[in-house]
Structure formats: C-alpha cells, structure tokens
Design a protein around this nucleic acid. Structure first.
Length: 808
DNA sequence: GAATTCATGATTTTT
DNA sequence: TCATGAATTC
C-alpha cells in the first residue's frame, strides 16, 4: 500500500502553523494538581508542536477518560501518535504501561512508526496491539483458567467451517437445511453477545434454534478438545478470564496506566468490555473514533459503544476534531450532504481551510467496460495535466467482483495497478496445507489441521477410513492424531481396526507426522517446512501439476521466507510464535512487511493505481478517488435495501469512500451492467440523488467500441444528466412518470424509474421489489398504476441514452 | 479411491 | 460468470 493514512495531517501542520505558539489556558496542558507525572513543559511543547489547538488538547488531556471524535482527514493518527509521545516523553509514563489497541496490524505499525519518529527512545518499548493479538498474549499466559492450554491453535474461518461441516455430518443434518455459513454466523453472534451454548439451548424456541444450539455446543466441545480458539474465542475467553479471575484483572489494571483504543466505532461488545474492565480502575482511557465511519456492524461492531462509553465514564471529556486537512471544501460538503441523511447521528460540523476545489464528477457510462475505460482515460488525464502520481489515485468499489472489469481494462491499456485484497496469501490452499502440518506438529490435538492433510496429497486414505478413525478417537475422548498413531503402534492402544490397505496408508501417514514431530525439536520453522513439503509428497505433487504447480511452489517458497525470521531460538517456541503470527496477521499487512502480493502487482513496481473495496479503503487517502458502480443494488447493496439500519451503514460506506478523496472525486454509474452473467439495466444510486446539485458535474460518457486501441481522451459530453436535477418524464402521451407505483402481472409491485420514448413505443424502467430492475415496452407490458404516485422526480432520471450509444 | 460432471448460489471480511 | 462442494462415473 502506498498511500499512508492521514498523510495530510502533516500538511495540516503547516496550515495551522500560525496557531502554534504555546496557547495559554489550554485545557489539556494544565495538569491536575496532585498528579505525580507532570509534563516537562518545554519538551512537552516540542512534542505537541505542529498540532492545532484542538489536536493539542486531544493529545495532551491525559487525566481521566477522553473521547476523541475524529472526522475524516482530521489528523487522527497524528494526534494518537503525539499523544503516545506526550505520555512517554513529557509525562514520563513508561511505554510498557500504555496499552494501545488498533484494529489492524497495519494501523498498529503505522502508529508505532509515527510515535517512533517523535520519541525514538520510548517507542522501542512501546507495543501497539490489535485486540486479538493482545488477547492472544493474555491467553498464552493465563489461558488455563478458561480451558486453553499453552500452545493452543487459532482457528480461522476456514477451520471453523470444516469443524461445523464435520459436526453436521455426525449429526446427520443436511447442510442445505442448515448452511454452514449461517451456523457460523449464529455461533459468532452468540459469542459476541456472550451467550454460551447452554444458555443458547435454554432459550431456543424453534426447531431451527434447537439444532443451531446443538451444533454450537458440539462446536465448542470440538474446539476445546482440539485446544483451539477461533477469533471470537480470543476475545470471549479473554473477557471471561478477566471477569473470573480478579487477581489477573488487577494485574493488568495495574500494569496499564493508560489505554488508547483506535477505531472505537468498530469495536464489538467483547472488545469494549475488555477495554472497559481494564480501564475502570485508573480511568485513563482514550477512545478515538467516528460514528459516521462505522462500517463493520455486520461483524458485530456496535457503534452504541460510544453511548456506553459515556455511560461508563460520565466524566469523560469529549474532543471533536472537525477540521479536515484532507479534502477540498466541495468534497467535504458533498460527503456531508450524503451522511446528513442518516438519522439520529451526532452532527459534526466538518470544515476545512483547503481550497474550494473542483465539483464532484458524476458520470454515467454505458456499461462496466465503458466505466473502466472512462476511469482509465481520466487517470491518464490527471497524471498528465495535474502531474500527480498514479499511486495517488484509487478506484473503489463495493464488491470484489467489480475489480474484474477494471483489471481487464487496465491490462488492455497497459496501466499498472495494484489490487488490494483478493485471495489472501495465508488462505491459499497450498499454504494452508503446509501450515496444517506445522500446526499439527505444534498442537497434536488440532484435529482440523489433521483432517486437512491426512489425505493431501492423496495417499489412499478414504473418507470412510477417516470417519472410522474419528469414531474411535471420539470414543476414547482422544485427539484424532492418537487414533492415527495407534495404527502404527504395535500395541495399537486404541485398537483401531482397518483393512490392511487402509492400515498401511494410515501407518505411512503416521510415520510422516511422527517424524515431523520428532524433528520439530531440533529444526527451525523453515526447515520444518522443507521437511513437510518433501516428505508429504507435496513437492512431487506440484511438480506434476503443469498448470499451477510452479506458481504454488513459488508461494510455498514465500511461506518459507516468511518463516525465516522465526529462527535462532528454541525451535518449538519459534514454531508457535510463527503460527500465531500467521493466524493473526492478514495478507494485507504482509504486503508491507515484504511478503508476497500477487505477481501482477509486484511486477508493476511503484507507480500504480490502486483497486480497492470501500471497506478496505477506510483510513486511506488519495488525491483522486473513483467510486465505481454507484448503482442501486451495488451501493447500496441489494441485501441492504430492506433494512433501514443496514441502509444507513451503506450510506456510511459511501461517506467513507467520498472522504478518501483529497482533490478529485468521481462517482461512476452505468446504464446497464453485466452481473453474474446476465445483463441488467442499472439505476443510479440513491446516494447520488443526495448530492447537492451545485457541487456536481454530471456527465455521460459515450463509449466507442472501435476505439479500444487508440486511446483518446474521454468525451465528457455536456449532457445534463438528470442527477439530481430530477425531472419527470412528462412528455405528452406518456401515461407513467418516474416515481409512480405500478403493478405488473408477472413482476409484481414496483416503482417507475424512468420513462422515455423510443421509436414506436414508450419504454419504462421499473424497479420491482424482489424482482430487480426491468425495462418494459409499454406497448406490450401490461402495467397498471397501484396506489398514489410518490412525488415524481425524486427517483427519476432520464439518461437520454439509447442502446445504440454503446460500444462493445 | 480418484476423476469427472453437475448443481448451486454468490456483500463487505480489520482478526 | 464462476468458484465450490456433491453426485456420478471410471
């Protein structure tokens, strides 16, 4: 990733340089009487230099709870870094007495690096955690209180699914009736509500709930037997540990004199409670967040934590950072106009001293190909005319599938790009396979790992054989590996009975695992990887695979490389450290630490545009941002249209995207889009209608099919597209107009989106509830009015397009 | 026991 | 469209 978050915070420093003189009567810099740690004043000033008054206040209010509401581009990271520097440098708080928590490893690294620049000496000892890594640490020490033995394994989503699928099989439940993903979601949300299986079952009312509860119960048992914890468990068990063991709670409460929580709007209840427990004693907790950027409620993030925070810490000081050092006035106003449509939000008055800037471009293209081409052409123009680098440009979209057309177009045009996300490195099959060998070695109870590799590469162990092994293991309350090893043991302690052929195969596998375990005492992780690859037959399998073998081998070489930094120490400890790191560090982070990203991106070198989902873009900023697919069904996503609460989250997502832009913002939508194979007309996003007209430059880009080779500047035609200057189609003779509620014999109830005359007929675009958007020829379609017409025009647009416009 | 075809269903994804 | 898991065939 090239664009580091909040970099304009730095330019903000110069903007507000005039107010840098030590301010008198500043709330924060005046320590309370009786406080033992007094800031050394001149050094303190140095540490706060370059901050605005408001930022200084936020950075230096160190006595008691503090809530920082930080709007987009307000220099949040900067303030946090200065705060940490101030605490260690000016207040003399030892770095190890500060608990700083962010959500991602990337953000953690960023914060630490910034802090290091300010107070190099202290930052060496400063650890910035993610919630999960902090919890993993606590559980490594004291996990036994909550049923985790040292060396426990962290299960990822994939492991979770495997375990659940297994359980369904055992219980003889049809996965079609009870989809694995759904069960996983139920289990996860139960954990986040701190509801354990027993309680879940007690309150289960329906048959489905009963089943789900029993799966949940078995799932927890399976994890416990495997000495494993999923991501939710890391949090849940930590909370249980702190709640159940007062002396341990006290230990951490005393150790951490100051707590800092970033992205507070995205904390889930478990995380909030952990932070709360640790902080209630000394009450020095600072949380930073922006409710308008809460976009992870689907992962149980709960923005009402902000309210809870104020209830728990009523004396909390609130500092609002509302000056944006990032975006132009126009962009800020446009974003604000959109987010203002959310109800019950705490209003912020974002302002900036930045220039007014260009209008937001709202452009319609014919289809997603035209969209991609228009983006690329405009990227070219920006680079040429405004002399900005390509890595200051990002294209953002709602769903990953949208990246495809962009990638194709970039490749065709020879434009370097960097794709963020996609299939993650540690989630690739070959990587997970080899890691499973290591996991099994590190934690012999890790059944999920064993099941993954027992027949990988195929070594003649059938599902039936595995089922038998599992049955025996379960009967003996033993890990699966015990059953496997028993086959190889002369005494066969578990008395496993298999056919000679199966027994042979299992025995060979048992030899392999036994050997790996034996060698793990003396080999470093990367050597163990070599051994596992070689002895398991994985190398041979990849050599035989002409298609993807080489690429997958390359990935394994990279894996080996990433293990190298875990060498030199005690082999077993190195191994578990490596595995924990793998489990808690996602691929996006790995990119920055030199781990592989995908081939294409690596070869592109530095100056490439970024393709990224809106979710992943949070915290980043670019000179120019293209939001593509600004259409109903995409943003807002179709799955959110029913529920007003979810709709508001979609709007926040839109807000996050818009506020990533410093100077140029483009919001693109199409006339029709190919989606899951079939073509369907698209309807501009309702969020586009929320943009104030004077801030918008609406355009229609006409694509020309024949000109894919010769790159010409885009023809931004001056057509006044009807966004948001809505007008009803009121041509004489037209029966319907935009906004009318209608009924169709086949598609049911719907709303007219637009109506226009076409040769010989009148075409209406209608959005049907449940059936999507359809174009109907009124001459044929029997469309009738239903109910009173909504205020026409609100939803209306008239593209003026006819299909002949289009290329491709 | 492995390889093939078939059906299905599909946001976002910090950890 | 396209990736994944199950059913079917070799």
């Amino acid at each position: 990733m090239t664009s580091s978050p909040e970099t304009t915070g730095d330019s903000g420093a110069s903007l507000s340089a005039s107010s840098d003189a030590p301010a008198s009567g500043e709330t924060g810099s005046e320590p309370r009487p009786g406080l033992s740690r007094k800031p050394a004043s001149s050094f303190a000033d140095t540490l706060l230099a370059g901050l605005s008054d408001r930022q200084k206040e936020a950075a230096s209010y160190v006595d008691g709870p503090l809530l920082i509401v930080a709007g987009p581009g307000s220099g949040k990271t900067r303030v946090m870094a200065h705060r940490l520097a101030y605490l260690t440098g000016a207040c003399g708080v030892p770095p190890y007495r500060i608990l700083a928590v962010t959500f991602t490893n990337k953000a953690a690294r960023e914060l630490r690096e910034r802090c290091q620049r300010l107070v190099p000496s202290a930052a060496d000892q400063l650890r910035v955690f993610t919630f999960h890594s902090f919890c993993a640490l606590m559980l490594r020490y004291d996990g036994e209180y909550v049923g985790l033995k040292p060396g426990f394994t962290i299960y990822d989503d994939d492991d979770q699914s495997r375990v659940i699928r297994r359980i369904l099989q055992e219980m003889d439940i049809d996965p079609k009736q009870f989809p694995v993903g759904q069960l996983r979601a139920i289990i996860s949300s139960s954990k986040n509500k701190m509801v354990m299986p027993a309680e879940f079952l007690k309150t289960a009312e329906t048959y489905r709930e009963e089943i789900a509860g029993r799966v949940y119960e078995k799932y927890q048992e399976a994890l416990s037997r495997a000495n494993s914890a999923d991501f939710d468990d890391l949090l849940l068990k930590s909370l249980q540990l702190l709640e159940g063991q007062p002396e341990i709670l006290l230990k951490y409460q005393q150790r951490y004199e100051h707590i800092l929580v970033d992205e507070f709007q995205d904390t889930n209840p478990l995380q909030f409670n952990i932070a709360r427990l640790l902080a209630v004693k000394h009450r020095n907790i600072c949380v930073v967040g922006d409710p308008d950027q809460s976009i992870y409620s689907w992962r149980h993030a709960d923005p009402t934590n902000l309210t809870d925070f104020r209830a728990t810490f009523p004396e909390a000081k609130i500092v609002t950072l509302d000056q944006s050092y990032r975006s132009t006035q126009v962009i800020l106003e446009a974003a604000d106009a959109v987010i203002a449509n959310n109800e019950g939000r705490m209003e912020k008055n974002l302002w900036t001293e930045n220039p007014r800037g260009d209008r937001v471009v709202v452009a319609e293209t014919y289809d997603e190909e035209g969209e991609a081409r228009a983006v690329i052409n405009e990227v070219d123009r920006l680079v040429k005319q405004h002399n900005i680098t390509r890595d200051q440009i990002a294209v953002m979209y709602r769903i990953n599938a949208q990246s495809r057309s962009l990638e194709v177009a970039c490749n065709r045009a020879g434009l370097p790009y960097r794709l963020v996300g996609g299939v993650k490195f540690y989630e690739r099959r070959e990587v997970k396979d080899i890691l499973s060998f290591l996991r099994l070695v590190s934690n012999p109870a890790d059944d999920a790992a064993l099941e993954r590799v027992i027949n990988t590469p195929t070594r003649g162990i059938s599902d039936r054989t595995v089922a038998e092994l599992r049955r025996i293991a379960a009967a003996n309350q033993a890990p699966l590996l015990d059953a496997v090893l028993s086959v190889r043991d002369e005494n066969n302690p578990l008395n496993v009975q298999l056919s000679t052929r199966a027994a042979n195969s299992v025995s060979m596998f048992a030899d392999l695992v036994a050997r790996l375990i034996e060698q793990s005492l003396v080999l470093q992780p990367q050597e163990l990887i070599d051994l596992a690859m070689e002895r398991s037959g994985y190398v041979r399998m990849l050599q035989e695979d002409k298609e993807t073998g080489e690429e997958r081998m390359e990935n394994l070489r990279e894996l080996r490389g990433s293990a190298e930094q875990y060498s030199g120490g005690e082999p077993r400890e190195q191994l578990s450290e490596f595995l924990e790191n793998v489990a808690l560090v996602s691929d996006v982070d790995a990119v920055r630490t030199g781990n592989p990203l995908r081939q294409e991106a690596r070869e592109e070198g530095q100056d490439a545009i970024t393709l990224i989902t809106l979710h992943q873009a949070k915290g980043l900023e670019y000179e120019a941002v293209f939001m593509v697919g600004m259409e109903e069904g995409l943003l807002p996503h179709s799955r959110s249209t029913e529920d007003p609460v979810q709709m508001e989250e979609e709007r926040r997502l839109c807000y996050v995207g818009m506020t990533r832009a410093k100077r140029w913002l483009y919001m693109m939508h199409t006339f029709q889009r190919r989606f899951r194979g079939s073509l369907s007309p698209s309807m501009p996003s309702r969020f586009l209608m929320e943009l104030p007209e004077p801030l918008v430059k609406a355009q229609t880009v006409r694509s020309r099919a024949s000109q894919t080779e010769t790159r010409a500047d885009p023809q931004w035609s001056r057509r006044a597209a009807a966004v948001p200057a809505a007008r009803s189609a009121s041509q004489p003779g037209l029966e319907f107009s935009a906004g009318d509620r209608v009924r169709h014999s086949h598609f049911g109830e719907g709303v007219v989106v637009s109506v226009k005359a076409v040769p010989g007929d009148v075409e209406a675009t209608v959005a049907f509830s449940g059936n999507g958007v359809k174009r109907l020829m009124l001459g044929f379609a029997k469309l009738e009015r239903s109910g009173a017409g909504a205020d026409s025009g609100k939803n209306g647009r008239d593209t003026g397009h006819s299909p002949e416009d289009g290329g491709a």
